[in-house]
């Protein structure tokens, strides 16, 4: 589904990603771990198409299509979803209004009519129950005055509504207490299928107890320095990252 080859990306002439190779197939869950400043968030932003980052070398392909000239909104229409580490506030725009706009814009891009209101309502009811979201929450301004947990739950709610092909969860566990973490993880697990894929970006192994990865990759200094199965996450939890910093690049 997603194929990243020798990806180099920089911001303001500073190279952050220095040759990433990653292949994600439908039905898989990949975890990307690594210390602060290793390039995890940059990788997710680059996949999502943030223009601030310049891809200097290599390629990102989704279902065989090179995404180089594909805008962020078009990537979203193609099914890429990024759950933000720090979701932004949009005062005066309700969660419902925002998700309605997002869904209908994606439908428009696919040549579909707006989703009928009753269908939208049903979908909202269904997905908010899945994530244990209070109906009142849906009429609040997007992320304005939300707690850390509410923000993350809102991200996963949007993911549930948009049903992406590829979901990237960027530090979705940060700022979550254990109950919220469980709800969010359960939500993600219920949305998982053989047709979609999830990339979980995280610092800690904690989230991976709930969302069990098929593959774990360790990012350090803009490169994937080690890949393995879920046991790698446990090893990292015990030993920290230092022992990997001198490892050679895993091809």
């Amino acid at each position: 589904m997603l194929k990243i080859e020798n990806l180099h990306a920089s911001v303001e002439d500073k190279e952050i990603l220095k040759g990433i190779n990653l292949e994600v197939n439908a039905g898989e869950v990949h975890a990307i771990m690594g210390p602060n400043g290793s390039g995890k968030s940059t990788l997710s932003a680059v996949i999502a198409g943030k223009e601030e980052f310049e891809v200097t070398e290599g390629s990102i392909k989704l279902d065989g299509e090179d995404l180089e000239d594909v805008s962020a909104e078009e990537r979203a229409h193609k099914g890429i979803f990024l759950s933000f580490q720090y979701p932004v506030e949009i005062p005066g725009v309700s969660v419902t209004n925002f998700i309605k706009t997002a869904i209908n814009e994606s439908r428009k891009a696919r040549g579909l009519e707006d989703m009928p209101a009753n269908k939208m309502l049903k979908l909202i009811r269904e997905k908010s129950e899945l994530l244990d979201i209070d109906r009142k929450f849906l009429s609040r301004s997007l992320n304005e005055g939300f707690s850390g947990g509410e923000k993350k739950r809102n991200e996963i709610f949007q993911m549930a509504m948009l049903e992406p092909k590829l979901a990237i969860l960027d530090e979705t566990d940060s700022g979550l207490d254990i109950d919220a973490l469980r709800i969010v993880a359960n939500g993600v697990n219920k949305l998982k299928s053989k047709d979609n894929a999830v990339i979980v970006i995280t610092h800690y192994q904690r989230l991976l107890e709930y969302i069990v990865p098929d593959f774990v990759h360790v990012l350090h200094n803009g490169k994937i320095v080690k890949s393995g199965g879920k046991e790698l996450a446990i090893e990292l939890e015990e030993k920290g990252y230092d022992w990997l910093k001198n490892e050679a690049v895993v091809e």
């Binding site: 909104e73 990537r75 005062p91 005066g92 209004n97 925002f98 814009e105």
Partner: peptide, 27 residues
């Protein structure tokens, strides 16, 4: 830019994003 990118990422183009933000501000 972060607000705009957030909207873009959800499939909302820049033009629509500005309209959404402005309408929210003016609500």
């Amino acid at each position: 830019e972060d607000q705009i990118f957030y909207c873009n990422q959800r499939g909302i183009d820049t033009e629509k994003a500005i309209a959404l933000i402005v309408n929210g501000f003016s609500k």
